[in-house]
Amino acid sequence: MGKNQAKKTDLPLHKIIMVGSGGVGKSALTLQYMYGDFIEEYDPTKADSYRKKVTLDGQESFIDILDTAGQEEYAAIRDNYYRSGEGFLCVFSLCEQESFQHTQEFRDQICRVLDDEKVPFILVGNKADLTSDRQVSTREGELKAKEWGCPYMETSAKTRQNVDEAFCKLMRSIRDRKEAKGGGKAGASKAPKKKSSCMLL
């Protein structure tokens, strides 16, 4: 129906891509954010797309989340969807040092594909609830984020700790970047900047 299409296209759309090694909880974070669910069982994702209307700082907008496979056979496959992303939520597991190391690869590929070091990016250490299994310290994460010039957050998809905050932060930086560019894809969004916290519908 045209009406709905019109409605949707009128609102700004922020495209977020979830990246990170397999099993760190990209899908869990996404589902928690989207539906408020937490699903224990692990079912490797190939790729899933989610869309949802949110109110970001008082302005309605759509968020489009592409949940990707952590274990991609050929990294090049990612290139295309990296290209489509406006912001990246790079996830590692606080309980798995290796997944933390891998974030560098993801970061590098994204920067390479987009040829942009300043792309909205947020480093997220997930599984913060499993404190006893922790392998990556907050300090390490922070250092890495500092190195990349991006925010760092620790989340728990299980307890929803920082989940909304992470997505909102990313969306905000996407929005700010779009506004800074003064047009581009999201030219329609001329919403005044508000620093109040985000709200979910």
């Binding site: 790729a47 295309n80 969807y81």
Partner: peptide, 19 residues
Amino acid sequence: TEEEGLLQVVWRGIQEEFT
């Protein structure tokens, strides 16, 4: 359609199939 935003998902599937 743009509406569902499935292009990337589908294209990823196609790439995989290609390989």
